[in-house]
Design a binder for these strands. Structure first.
Lengths: 243, 243
DNA sequence: CGGAGCGTTGAAAGCCCTCAACGTTTGTGG
DNA sequence: CCACAAACGTTGAGGGCTTTCAACGCTCCG
Protein backbone atom coordinates (compact mmCIF):
# COMPACT_ATOMS: atom_id res chain seq x y z
CA UNK A 1 0.00 0.00 0.00
CA UNK A 2 1.08 3.57 -0.60
CA UNK A 3 2.51 5.40 2.37
CA UNK A 4 -0.27 7.98 2.41
CA UNK A 5 -3.01 5.49 1.56
CA UNK A 6 -4.85 5.87 4.86
CA UNK A 7 -4.80 9.67 4.88
CA UNK A 8 -8.43 10.86 5.12
CA UNK A 9 -9.52 7.33 4.33
CA UNK A 10 -13.21 7.12 5.04
CA UNK A 11 -13.29 10.86 5.68
CA UNK A 12 -13.13 12.61 2.34
CA UNK A 13 -10.17 10.94 0.69
CA UNK A 14 -12.27 10.39 -2.39
CA UNK A 15 -12.26 14.14 -2.91
CA UNK A 16 -8.59 13.84 -3.85
CA UNK A 17 -7.79 13.34 -7.49
CA UNK A 18 -5.30 10.73 -8.58
CA UNK A 19 -2.77 13.48 -9.25
CA UNK A 20 -3.28 14.99 -5.81
CA UNK A 21 -2.68 11.63 -4.20
CA UNK A 22 0.54 11.35 -6.18
CA UNK A 23 1.63 14.85 -5.18
CA UNK A 24 1.03 14.10 -1.52
CA UNK A 25 2.84 10.80 -1.77
CA UNK A 26 5.78 12.53 -3.40
CA UNK A 27 5.89 15.09 -0.60
CA UNK A 28 6.99 12.37 1.81
CA UNK A 29 10.69 12.62 2.46
CA UNK A 30 11.18 9.39 4.40
CA UNK A 31 9.57 6.83 6.66
CA UNK A 32 10.71 6.31 10.24
CA UNK A 33 9.75 4.15 13.17
CA UNK A 34 9.56 4.99 16.86
CA UNK A 35 9.19 2.59 19.77
CA UNK A 36 6.21 2.75 22.10
CA UNK A 37 6.11 5.38 24.86
CA UNK A 38 8.54 7.80 23.24
CA UNK A 39 8.31 11.57 23.19
CA UNK A 40 8.67 12.67 19.57
CA UNK A 41 8.22 16.43 19.75
CA UNK A 42 8.45 18.65 22.77
CA UNK A 43 6.24 21.66 23.30
CA UNK A 44 7.74 24.89 21.98
CA UNK A 45 10.08 23.28 19.48
CA UNK A 46 10.18 24.86 16.08
CA UNK A 47 9.27 22.22 13.53
CA UNK A 48 10.10 22.06 9.84
CA UNK A 49 8.47 18.77 8.97
CA UNK A 50 5.09 17.25 9.66
CA UNK A 51 4.35 13.69 10.64
CA UNK A 52 1.83 11.42 8.97
CA UNK A 53 1.06 8.37 11.07
CA UNK A 54 1.11 5.20 8.99
CA UNK A 55 0.59 2.60 11.69
CA UNK A 56 0.24 2.55 15.44
CA UNK A 57 -1.15 4.99 17.99
CA UNK A 58 0.26 8.34 19.07
CA UNK A 59 -0.98 11.06 21.37
CA UNK A 60 -0.67 14.76 21.98
CA UNK A 61 -0.73 16.03 25.53
CA UNK A 62 -0.12 18.93 27.90
CA UNK A 63 1.47 18.67 31.31
CA UNK A 64 -0.16 19.89 34.51
CA UNK A 65 1.77 21.15 37.48
CA UNK A 66 0.95 18.14 39.63
CA UNK A 67 2.81 15.83 37.24
CA UNK A 68 -0.27 14.47 35.58
CA UNK A 69 -0.89 15.15 31.94
CA UNK A 70 -3.97 15.79 29.87
CA UNK A 71 -4.19 14.15 26.49
CA UNK A 72 -5.64 16.52 23.91
CA UNK A 73 -5.66 14.11 20.98
CA UNK A 74 -5.22 10.48 20.04
CA UNK A 75 -3.77 9.92 16.58
CA UNK A 76 -4.46 6.79 14.59
CA UNK A 77 -3.30 5.38 11.28
CA UNK A 78 -3.84 7.89 8.49
CA UNK A 79 -3.78 10.93 10.77
CA UNK A 80 -1.53 13.88 10.09
CA UNK A 81 -0.24 14.20 13.64
CA UNK A 82 1.17 17.70 13.47
CA UNK A 83 0.20 19.22 10.16
CA UNK A 84 -0.84 22.24 12.19
CA UNK A 85 2.84 22.69 12.90
CA UNK A 86 3.19 23.91 9.34
CA UNK A 87 1.19 27.14 9.63
CA UNK A 88 1.94 27.49 13.34
CA UNK A 89 5.68 26.82 13.12
CA UNK A 90 5.91 25.64 16.72
CA UNK A 91 3.71 23.36 18.78
CA UNK A 92 1.93 24.26 21.98
CA UNK A 93 1.93 20.67 23.24
CA UNK A 94 4.03 17.50 23.31
CA UNK A 95 3.71 14.61 20.87
CA UNK A 96 4.48 11.05 21.91
CA UNK A 97 3.93 7.49 20.81
CA UNK A 98 1.62 5.10 22.61
CA UNK A 99 2.46 1.94 20.66
CA UNK A 100 5.31 1.24 18.27
CA UNK A 101 4.64 3.43 15.26
CA UNK A 102 5.62 3.97 11.68
CA UNK A 103 5.44 7.53 10.41
CA UNK A 104 6.07 9.41 7.17
CA UNK A 105 7.83 12.76 7.37
CA UNK A 106 6.80 15.63 5.10
CA UNK A 107 9.13 18.64 4.93
CA UNK A 108 7.38 21.98 5.23
CA UNK A 109 9.03 23.43 2.16
CA UNK A 110 7.25 20.77 0.12
CA UNK A 111 3.99 21.83 1.71
CA UNK A 112 4.72 25.40 0.69
CA UNK A 113 5.20 24.13 -2.85
CA UNK A 114 1.81 22.43 -2.69
CA UNK A 115 0.27 25.62 -1.36
CA UNK A 116 1.66 27.52 -4.37
CA UNK A 117 0.64 25.03 -7.02
CA UNK A 118 -2.31 22.94 -5.80
CA UNK A 119 -5.08 25.04 -4.23
CA UNK A 120 -7.57 22.21 -4.11
CA UNK A 121 -5.13 19.88 -2.38
CA UNK A 122 -4.26 22.73 -0.05
CA UNK A 123 -7.89 23.02 0.90
CA UNK A 124 -7.97 19.30 1.60
CA UNK A 125 -4.91 19.51 3.84
CA UNK A 126 -6.42 22.51 5.58
CA UNK A 127 -9.60 20.54 6.00
CA UNK A 128 -7.73 17.67 7.61
CA UNK A 129 -6.41 19.97 10.33
CA UNK A 130 -9.97 21.15 10.92
CA UNK A 131 -11.17 17.60 11.40
CA UNK A 132 -8.76 17.53 14.32
CA UNK A 133 -10.29 20.72 15.63
CA UNK A 134 -13.74 19.14 15.40
CA UNK A 135 -12.41 16.28 17.51
CA UNK A 136 -11.05 18.79 20.01
CA UNK A 137 -14.49 20.34 20.31
CA UNK A 138 -16.10 16.98 20.95
CA UNK A 139 -13.48 16.31 23.62
CA UNK A 140 -14.41 19.61 25.27
CA UNK A 141 -18.02 18.51 25.25
CA UNK A 142 -17.08 15.13 26.67
CA UNK A 143 -15.10 16.63 29.54
CA UNK A 144 -17.51 19.43 30.27
CA UNK A 145 -20.82 17.62 30.15
CA UNK A 146 -20.43 13.86 30.62
CA UNK A 147 -19.91 11.85 33.77
CA UNK A 148 -17.25 9.15 34.05
CA UNK A 149 -19.28 6.45 32.31
CA UNK A 150 -20.21 8.81 29.51
CA UNK A 151 -16.63 9.92 28.98
CA UNK A 152 -15.18 6.44 28.80
CA UNK A 153 -18.04 5.27 26.60
CA UNK A 154 -17.50 8.26 24.34
CA UNK A 155 -13.81 7.52 23.90
CA UNK A 156 -14.57 3.92 23.00
CA UNK A 157 -17.20 4.94 20.48
CA UNK A 158 -14.93 7.51 18.89
CA UNK A 159 -11.94 5.23 18.62
CA UNK A 160 -14.08 2.49 17.19
CA UNK A 161 -15.57 4.76 14.55
CA UNK A 162 -12.21 6.19 13.55
CA UNK A 163 -10.48 2.81 13.44
CA UNK A 164 -13.34 1.30 11.49
CA UNK A 165 -12.95 4.08 8.92
CA UNK A 166 -9.39 2.94 8.22
CA UNK A 167 -10.16 -0.77 8.32
CA UNK A 168 -8.79 -1.51 11.75
CA UNK A 169 -11.93 -2.57 13.58
CA UNK A 170 -14.09 -5.60 13.01
CA UNK A 171 -17.27 -6.77 14.72
CA UNK A 172 -16.98 -4.02 17.29
CA UNK A 173 -13.50 -5.16 18.28
CA UNK A 174 -10.30 -3.18 17.91
CA UNK A 175 -6.79 -3.06 19.34
CA UNK A 176 -6.56 -0.59 22.20
CA UNK A 177 -2.99 -0.16 23.43
CA UNK A 178 -4.09 2.32 26.12
CA UNK A 179 -3.60 1.68 29.81
CA UNK A 180 -6.26 2.70 32.29
CA UNK A 181 -3.91 5.51 33.24
CA UNK A 182 -3.96 6.68 29.60
CA UNK A 183 -7.75 6.52 29.51
CA UNK A 184 -7.76 8.59 32.67
CA UNK A 185 -5.54 11.18 31.04
CA UNK A 186 -7.95 11.33 28.12
CA UNK A 187 -11.08 11.55 30.25
CA UNK A 188 -9.91 13.74 33.11
CA UNK A 189 -10.34 10.86 35.55
CA UNK A 190 -8.05 8.91 37.83
CA UNK A 191 -6.92 5.47 36.73
CA UNK A 192 -8.74 4.01 39.71
CA UNK A 193 -12.03 5.48 38.66
CA UNK A 194 -11.48 4.43 35.05
CA UNK A 195 -11.11 0.92 36.40
CA UNK A 196 -14.40 1.10 38.26
CA UNK A 197 -16.09 2.66 35.24
CA UNK A 198 -14.87 -0.05 32.87
CA UNK A 199 -16.13 -2.67 35.26
CA UNK A 200 -19.50 -0.98 35.25
CA UNK A 201 -19.62 -0.88 31.45
CA UNK A 202 -18.69 -4.54 31.37
CA UNK A 203 -21.25 -5.58 34.00
CA UNK A 204 -23.93 -3.60 32.19
CA UNK A 205 -23.15 -5.40 28.94
CA UNK A 206 -22.06 -2.26 27.09
CA UNK A 207 -18.37 -2.74 26.36
CA UNK A 208 -15.35 -4.76 27.40
CA UNK A 209 -11.74 -3.66 27.57
CA UNK A 210 -9.05 -6.15 28.40
CA UNK A 211 -5.57 -7.18 27.41
CA UNK A 212 -5.07 -4.50 24.82
CA UNK A 213 -8.35 -5.08 23.08
CA UNK A 214 -11.67 -3.30 23.25
CA UNK A 215 -15.01 -4.73 22.30
CA UNK A 216 -18.20 -2.80 21.92
CA UNK A 217 -20.97 -5.13 23.04
CA UNK A 218 -24.07 -2.97 22.74
CA UNK A 219 -23.32 -0.05 20.44
CA UNK A 220 -26.77 1.50 20.72
CA UNK A 221 -26.80 1.67 24.49
CA UNK A 222 -23.14 2.67 24.65
CA UNK A 223 -23.84 5.52 22.24
CA UNK A 224 -26.67 6.68 24.45
CA UNK A 225 -24.54 6.72 27.56
CA UNK A 226 -21.89 8.61 25.61
CA UNK A 227 -24.35 10.99 23.92
CA UNK A 228 -22.36 9.97 20.86
CA UNK A 229 -23.25 11.26 17.42
CA UNK A 230 -20.56 10.61 14.79
CA UNK A 231 -21.42 13.79 12.87
CA UNK A 232 -18.29 15.52 14.10
CA UNK A 233 -16.07 12.89 12.49
CA UNK A 234 -17.25 13.94 9.02
CA UNK A 235 -17.20 10.32 7.88
CA UNK A 236 -18.01 9.34 4.32
CA UNK A 237 -21.58 8.20 3.99
CA UNK A 238 -22.67 10.67 6.65
CA UNK A 239 -25.52 13.06 5.97
CA UNK A 240 -23.36 15.21 3.70
CA UNK A 241 -20.82 14.55 1.00
CA UNK A 242 -18.52 17.37 0.23
CA UNK A 243 -15.58 19.08 -1.40
CA UNK B 1 -10.95 51.66 10.94
CA UNK B 2 -10.98 48.99 8.30
CA UNK B 3 -13.49 46.22 8.75
CA UNK B 4 -10.81 43.57 9.06
CA UNK B 5 -8.44 45.71 11.10
CA UNK B 6 -8.62 43.54 14.22
CA UNK B 7 -8.11 40.26 12.39
CA UNK B 8 -5.05 38.57 13.91
CA UNK B 9 -4.24 41.84 15.63
CA UNK B 10 -1.57 41.12 18.19
CA UNK B 11 -1.29 37.56 16.89
CA UNK B 12 0.59 37.66 13.65
CA UNK B 13 -1.22 40.33 11.70
CA UNK B 14 2.09 41.98 10.92
CA UNK B 15 2.93 38.95 8.78
CA UNK B 16 0.32 40.21 6.32
CA UNK B 17 1.51 42.49 3.56
CA UNK B 18 -0.36 45.63 2.70
CA UNK B 19 -1.69 43.95 -0.42
CA UNK B 20 -2.89 40.94 1.54
CA UNK B 21 -4.76 43.16 3.96
CA UNK B 22 -6.42 44.82 0.99
CA UNK B 23 -7.34 41.48 -0.54
CA UNK B 24 -8.89 40.30 2.69
CA UNK B 25 -10.76 43.57 3.12
CA UNK B 26 -12.07 43.27 -0.42
CA UNK B 27 -13.28 39.74 0.28
CA UNK B 28 -15.90 41.11 2.67
CA UNK B 29 -19.29 41.14 1.06
CA UNK B 30 -21.20 43.10 3.67
CA UNK B 31 -21.45 44.01 7.33
CA UNK B 32 -24.38 42.93 9.47
CA UNK B 33 -25.47 43.28 13.06
CA UNK B 34 -27.15 40.76 15.34
CA UNK B 35 -28.74 41.40 18.72
CA UNK B 36 -27.48 39.71 21.87
CA UNK B 37 -28.47 36.09 22.57
CA UNK B 38 -29.29 35.14 19.01
CA UNK B 39 -28.50 31.85 17.31
CA UNK B 40 -26.70 32.69 14.07
CA UNK B 41 -25.85 29.26 12.65
CA UNK B 42 -27.31 25.92 13.58
CA UNK B 43 -25.33 22.74 13.68
CA UNK B 44 -25.39 20.79 10.45
CA UNK B 45 -26.25 23.74 8.23
CA UNK B 46 -24.28 24.00 5.02
CA UNK B 47 -22.56 27.35 4.97
CA UNK B 48 -21.32 29.38 2.01
CA UNK B 49 -19.98 32.40 3.85
CA UNK B 50 -17.77 32.87 6.86
CA UNK B 51 -18.21 35.39 9.63
CA UNK B 52 -15.55 37.78 10.89
CA UNK B 53 -16.49 39.30 14.22
CA UNK B 54 -15.89 43.06 14.24
CA UNK B 55 -17.28 43.95 17.65
CA UNK B 56 -18.99 42.13 20.48
CA UNK B 57 -18.82 38.62 21.84
CA UNK B 58 -20.06 35.40 20.25
CA UNK B 59 -19.87 31.76 21.23
CA UNK B 60 -19.89 28.31 19.74
CA UNK B 61 -21.57 25.51 21.64
CA UNK B 62 -22.89 21.98 21.59
CA UNK B 63 -26.07 20.80 23.25
CA UNK B 64 -26.23 17.98 25.77
CA UNK B 65 -29.24 15.75 26.22
CA UNK B 66 -30.16 17.21 29.58
CA UNK B 67 -30.77 20.61 28.01
CA UNK B 68 -27.52 22.12 29.16
CA UNK B 69 -24.99 23.20 26.62
CA UNK B 70 -21.21 23.17 26.52
CA UNK B 71 -19.48 26.18 25.06
CA UNK B 72 -16.54 25.13 22.90
CA UNK B 73 -15.30 28.59 22.01
CA UNK B 74 -15.72 32.25 22.83
CA UNK B 75 -15.16 34.61 19.91
CA UNK B 76 -14.01 38.18 20.38
CA UNK B 77 -13.39 41.14 18.10
CA UNK B 78 -11.09 40.21 15.25
CA UNK B 79 -11.91 36.50 15.37
CA UNK B 80 -12.99 34.62 12.29
CA UNK B 81 -15.89 32.85 13.94
CA UNK B 82 -16.44 30.10 11.41
CA UNK B 83 -13.65 30.21 8.88
CA UNK B 84 -13.41 26.46 9.42
CA UNK B 85 -16.79 26.28 7.75
CA UNK B 86 -15.02 26.96 4.47
CA UNK B 87 -13.02 23.73 4.23
CA UNK B 88 -15.57 21.77 6.25
CA UNK B 89 -18.68 23.02 4.43
CA UNK B 90 -20.93 22.36 7.38
CA UNK B 91 -20.56 23.04 11.08
CA UNK B 92 -20.65 20.47 13.83
CA UNK B 93 -21.86 22.98 16.41
CA UNK B 94 -24.10 26.01 16.86
CA UNK B 95 -22.97 29.62 16.70
CA UNK B 96 -24.69 32.35 18.72
CA UNK B 97 -24.19 35.87 19.93
CA UNK B 98 -23.57 36.75 23.55
CA UNK B 99 -23.72 40.53 23.24
CA UNK B 100 -24.92 42.71 20.37
CA UNK B 101 -22.43 42.14 17.58
CA UNK B 102 -21.26 43.53 14.30
CA UNK B 103 -19.90 41.01 11.81
CA UNK B 104 -18.42 40.99 8.33
CA UNK B 105 -19.50 38.27 5.93
CA UNK B 106 -17.01 36.71 3.52
CA UNK B 107 -18.41 34.52 0.73
CA UNK B 108 -16.62 31.24 0.29
CA UNK B 109 -16.13 31.67 -3.42
CA UNK B 110 -13.96 34.67 -2.66
CA UNK B 111 -11.92 32.51 -0.29
CA UNK B 112 -11.48 30.00 -3.10
CA UNK B 113 -10.18 32.84 -5.25
CA UNK B 114 -7.68 33.74 -2.50
CA UNK B 115 -6.64 30.10 -2.27
CA UNK B 116 -5.92 30.11 -6.01
CA UNK B 117 -4.02 33.37 -6.15
CA UNK B 118 -2.52 34.16 -2.73
CA UNK B 119 -0.74 31.18 -1.17
CA UNK B 120 0.85 33.22 1.60
CA UNK B 121 -2.44 34.79 2.62
CA UNK B 122 -3.98 31.33 2.44
CA UNK B 123 -1.43 30.10 4.90
CA UNK B 124 -2.28 32.98 7.22
CA UNK B 125 -5.98 32.19 7.03
CA UNK B 126 -5.21 28.53 7.63
CA UNK B 127 -3.09 29.56 10.58
CA UNK B 128 -5.92 31.57 12.07
CA UNK B 129 -8.13 28.47 12.17
CA UNK B 130 -5.31 26.64 13.92
CA UNK B 131 -5.09 29.32 16.59
CA UNK B 132 -8.67 28.35 17.37
CA UNK B 133 -7.61 24.72 17.59
CA UNK B 134 -4.86 25.69 20.02
CA UNK B 135 -7.51 27.37 22.15
CA UNK B 136 -9.59 24.21 21.96
CA UNK B 137 -6.66 22.21 23.30
CA UNK B 138 -6.17 24.56 26.19
CA UNK B 139 -9.87 24.27 26.97
CA UNK B 140 -9.49 20.49 27.05
CA UNK B 141 -6.65 20.90 29.50
CA UNK B 142 -8.69 23.29 31.58
CA UNK B 143 -11.64 20.93 31.82
CA UNK B 144 -9.61 17.80 32.29
CA UNK B 145 -7.06 18.93 34.83
CA UNK B 146 -8.20 22.01 36.73
CA UNK B 147 -10.64 22.33 39.61
CA UNK B 148 -13.39 24.94 39.67
CA UNK B 149 -11.16 27.81 40.83
CA UNK B 150 -8.53 26.95 38.24
CA UNK B 151 -11.07 26.76 35.44
CA UNK B 152 -12.70 30.09 36.19
CA UNK B 153 -9.32 31.71 36.74
CA UNK B 154 -8.11 30.30 33.45
CA UNK B 155 -11.06 31.71 31.52
CA UNK B 156 -10.48 35.13 33.01
CA UNK B 157 -6.79 35.05 32.17
CA UNK B 158 -7.45 33.93 28.62
CA UNK B 159 -10.14 36.48 27.91
CA UNK B 160 -8.01 39.23 29.37
CA UNK B 161 -5.01 38.28 27.24
CA UNK B 162 -7.07 38.04 24.06
CA UNK B 163 -8.95 41.27 24.68
CA UNK B 164 -5.75 43.09 25.55
CA UNK B 165 -4.30 41.95 22.23
CA UNK B 166 -7.06 43.80 20.38
CA UNK B 167 -7.02 46.85 22.63
CA UNK B 168 -10.11 46.06 24.66
CA UNK B 169 -8.63 45.66 28.12
CA UNK B 170 -6.98 48.24 30.33
CA UNK B 171 -5.43 47.95 33.77
CA UNK B 172 -6.62 44.39 34.12
CA UNK B 173 -10.21 45.39 33.48
CA UNK B 174 -12.39 44.36 30.58
CA UNK B 175 -16.04 44.10 29.63
CA UNK B 176 -17.39 40.63 30.34
CA UNK B 177 -20.96 40.21 29.08
CA UNK B 178 -21.11 36.63 30.37
CA UNK B 179 -23.60 35.49 32.98
CA UNK B 180 -22.55 33.03 35.65
CA UNK B 181 -24.58 30.49 33.72
CA UNK B 182 -22.42 31.20 30.65
CA UNK B 183 -19.25 30.80 32.69
CA UNK B 184 -20.61 27.50 33.92
CA UNK B 185 -21.21 26.36 30.35
CA UNK B 186 -17.63 27.25 29.54
CA UNK B 187 -16.13 25.58 32.59
CA UNK B 188 -18.31 22.51 32.91
CA UNK B 189 -19.70 23.79 36.22
CA UNK B 190 -23.12 24.77 37.51
CA UNK B 191 -23.96 28.44 37.77
CA UNK B 192 -24.25 28.01 41.52
CA UNK B 193 -20.74 26.72 41.82
CA UNK B 194 -19.41 29.44 39.53
CA UNK B 195 -20.95 31.90 41.95
CA UNK B 196 -19.18 30.36 44.92
CA UNK B 197 -15.95 30.19 42.97
CA UNK B 198 -16.10 33.83 41.97
CA UNK B 199 -16.70 34.77 45.58
CA UNK B 200 -13.65 32.77 46.53
CA UNK B 201 -11.52 34.50 43.92
CA UNK B 202 -12.78 37.86 45.11
CA UNK B 203 -12.21 37.10 48.80
CA UNK B 204 -8.73 35.84 48.03
CA UNK B 205 -7.91 39.06 46.19
CA UNK B 206 -7.35 37.39 42.82
CA UNK B 207 -10.10 38.74 40.57
CA UNK B 208 -13.47 40.43 40.65
CA UNK B 209 -16.41 39.94 38.31
CA UNK B 210 -19.46 42.11 38.65
CA UNK B 211 -21.99 43.98 36.59
CA UNK B 212 -20.59 42.96 33.22
CA UNK B 213 -17.02 43.84 34.05
CA UNK B 214 -14.10 41.69 35.08
CA UNK B 215 -11.03 42.90 36.90
CA UNK B 216 -7.88 40.92 37.41
CA UNK B 217 -6.51 41.99 40.77
CA UNK B 218 -3.46 39.78 41.18
CA UNK B 219 -2.41 38.45 37.79
CA UNK B 220 0.55 36.45 39.08
CA UNK B 221 -1.43 34.49 41.65
CA UNK B 222 -4.41 34.12 39.33
CA UNK B 223 -2.12 32.69 36.65
CA UNK B 224 -0.78 30.20 39.15
CA UNK B 225 -4.20 29.02 40.18
CA UNK B 226 -5.09 28.72 36.48
CA UNK B 227 -1.78 27.09 35.49
CA UNK B 228 -1.95 29.73 32.79
CA UNK B 229 0.82 30.13 30.24
CA UNK B 230 -0.11 32.35 27.28
CA UNK B 231 2.10 30.39 24.88
CA UNK B 232 -0.90 28.76 23.26
CA UNK B 233 -2.29 32.13 22.20
CA UNK B 234 0.69 32.72 19.89
CA UNK B 235 0.72 36.40 20.78
CA UNK B 236 3.14 38.82 19.20
CA UNK B 237 6.13 39.42 21.40
CA UNK B 238 5.99 35.88 22.67
CA UNK B 239 9.05 33.67 22.56
CA UNK B 240 8.84 33.25 18.79
CA UNK B 241 8.07 35.49 15.88
CA UNK B 242 7.01 33.71 12.76
CA UNK B 243 5.68 33.43 9.22
C1' DC C 1 11.50 -16.61 37.85
C1' DG C 2 11.59 -12.26 39.60
C1' DG C 3 10.27 -7.61 39.28
C1' DA C 4 7.89 -3.73 37.58
C1' DG C 5 4.04 -2.05 35.66
C1' DC C 6 -0.76 -2.64 35.33
C1' DG C 7 -5.21 -3.82 37.13
C1' DT C 8 -8.52 -4.43 41.10
C1' DT C 9 -10.89 -3.51 45.28
C1' DG C 10 -12.25 -1.17 49.75
C1' DA C 11 -12.85 2.76 52.90
C1' DA C 12 -12.95 7.49 53.82
C1' DA C 13 -12.71 12.23 52.45
C1' DG C 14 -13.54 16.12 49.34
C1' DC C 15 -15.39 18.64 45.64
C1' DC C 16 -19.21 19.78 43.20
C1' DC C 17 -24.18 19.21 42.34
C1' DT C 18 -29.00 19.53 43.48
C1' DC C 19 -32.71 21.70 45.52
C1' DA C 20 -34.61 25.53 47.63
C1' DA C 21 -35.19 30.15 49.00
C1' DC C 22 -34.34 34.85 48.73
C1' DG C 23 -31.96 39.24 47.33
C1' DT C 24 -30.51 42.23 43.44
C1' DT C 25 -30.29 44.11 38.97
C1' DT C 26 -32.04 45.04 34.54
C1' DG C 27 -35.28 46.09 31.21
C1' DT C 28 -39.90 47.31 29.84
C1' DG C 29 -44.32 49.50 29.73
C1' DG C 30 -47.47 52.45 31.88
C1' DC D 1 -40.13 58.25 36.43
C1' DC D 2 -42.01 54.54 38.66
C1' DA D 3 -43.68 49.87 39.05
C1' DC D 4 -43.30 45.51 37.96
C1' DA D 5 -41.58 41.26 36.15
C1' DA D 6 -38.04 38.45 34.70
C1' DA D 7 -33.51 37.32 34.68
C1' DC D 8 -29.50 37.14 37.33
C1' DG D 9 -26.92 36.58 41.52
C1' DT D 10 -26.35 34.71 46.37
C1' DT D 11 -26.49 31.57 50.13
C1' DG D 12 -27.42 27.22 52.87
C1' DA D 13 -28.05 22.23 53.54
C1' DG D 14 -27.67 17.71 52.05
C1' DG D 15 -26.36 14.18 48.86
C1' DG D 16 -23.66 11.97 45.15
C1' DC D 17 -19.78 11.27 42.24
C1' DT D 18 -14.99 11.10 42.07
C1' DT D 19 -10.62 11.27 44.42
C1' DT D 20 -7.27 9.77 47.61
C1' DC D 21 -4.85 6.39 50.08
C1' DA D 22 -3.77 1.79 50.74
C1' DA D 23 -3.26 -2.96 49.84
C1' DC D 24 -2.98 -6.79 46.95
C1' DG D 25 -3.42 -9.73 42.64
C1' DC D 26 -2.15 -10.29 37.88
C1' DT D 27 0.55 -10.20 33.66
C1' DC D 28 4.24 -9.72 30.87
C1' DC D 29 8.90 -9.38 29.75
C1' DG D 30 13.76 -9.63 30.48
Amino acid sequence: MRITGDFLRGRGRTAMTREEKDVLEAAVDRVETFPARTVVIRRGETVDMSTLLIDGVMCRYMDARDGYRQLVAIQLAGDFVDLHGYPLRRLDHDVATISDVRVALVPHDRLTRILETHPHLTRILWRSTLLDAALHREWIFRLGRLDAAGRVAHVLMELHARLAAVGRARDGRFALPLTQQDLGEICGLTAVHVNRTLRRLREDGLAEVARGEARIVDAARLARVAEFDPDYLYLDGGPWQEL
